[in-house]
Design a protein around this nucleic acid. Structure first.
Lengths: 178, 178
DNA sequence: TTGACTATGTATCGGATCGATATATGTTGT
DNA sequence: ACAACATATATCGATCCGATACATAGTCAA
């Protein structure tokens, strides 16, 4: 799935600007399972507008730069449906944290515990964001589904790390050294 | 973290070829939290060899193409340590499956259930791979740590999906429609 | 036995994508 | 007063992916 389909899907749910798409996928309901940068979002929107899959209207705002609000066209919905027909590819989970843990022979135990704490903070931040999103009124079945998925996964991560952390603190420097 | 650091880390644990690095990250212990393609691995190995971070030796094999086995140099270890000093960036989880579920207004309930079954099959495949890796004798602390993490996360995903699937099968076409 | 397929292995190239940066403006904080 | 930050669009080099090519050999079925 490419950024084009991602943007189409977003705009099909709510008319929005490129900036708002970026916000939604880094702070909103989608933050835990999707990513894209301005460098790919803006060209995709421009291109798809030229192809007639989207329409733009400039929305003036007081005290802020103008917003380009995009809306999906019937052709856009057709393109989206077709894109959603292809089977989704396998999930990709990338964790530099785990890579560091794998190579922990290169780092001290203090660094390890600090990395675990940082990871726990990141995970809990994500959990808070999901909790906040789930508590809003406008959640439909799709949002509840993906929110619940993220919550289950992140909770499991936190539980595992807490367990390992307690283990490390109990056995002083024994496991990390050898 | 870039592919260079990834390859350095791998080779620091066991001398290997580019092909074996790719195998390890798509079938082995690392498959669930790392990814890289030939298109980035081979150039990285060539470049780092030219920079003196790695050494190569051609290993002849009967009935197979020659293998280029890479080993890390002292300079390579220094570079790796330095690379591991920078704080790991946040985990990235990308799921086209969840994106499809979010937009499930565009697909039928049958398609949804099929997608869930496919996802469950993928997750269970990963779980099997981790189980197999964990059962080998050569697992150290780092491997046990990352294996356990993956196991916890994947198990939670499976449990959540099984629950949702049962829910969908119980309530006939009610939730998916509205 | 021939052709298709799979596995091991190295390599490259176009295109997709990231990450950083530039530009402009207003608000908030010290 | 001035730094920092949020809103907003845009571009560009560096990186990386996905597909493909090439070479060799084993397997398996028509």
């Amino acid at each position: 799935m490419n950024v084009r389909t991602l943007c189409l899907g977003m705009i099909s749910r709510f008319e929005c600007s490129g900036y708002e798409i970026k916000k939604a996928i880094e702070e909103g309901m989608f933050s835990h399972f999707i990513d894209a940068s301005f460098g790919s979002i803006y060209p995709a929107l421009t291109q798809m507008t030229a192809e007639g899959l989207l329409t733009v209207r400039a929305e003036e705002q007081t005290g802020r730069p103008d917003k380009k609000v995009y809306a999906i066209t019937p052709e856009g919905r057709v393109a989206l449906s077709r894109a959603l027909l292809v089977k989704p590819s396998k999930d990709k989970f990338k964790s530099e944290f785990l890579f560091h843990m794998l190579l922990q022979e290169f780092v001290s135990k203090d660094v390890m515990l600090a990395a675990i704490d940082k990871q726990l903070a990141d995970l809990n931040e994500d959990l808070d964001r999901i909790r906040e999103c789930q508590s809003r009124e406008d959640i439909d079945y799709g949002k509840r589904f993906v929110g619940g998925y993220g919550y289950a996964v992140l909770s499991a991560s936190v539980a595992y790390l807490e367990q390992r952390k307690a283990e490390l603190l109990r056995e002083p420097a024994a496991q990390a050294a050898e």
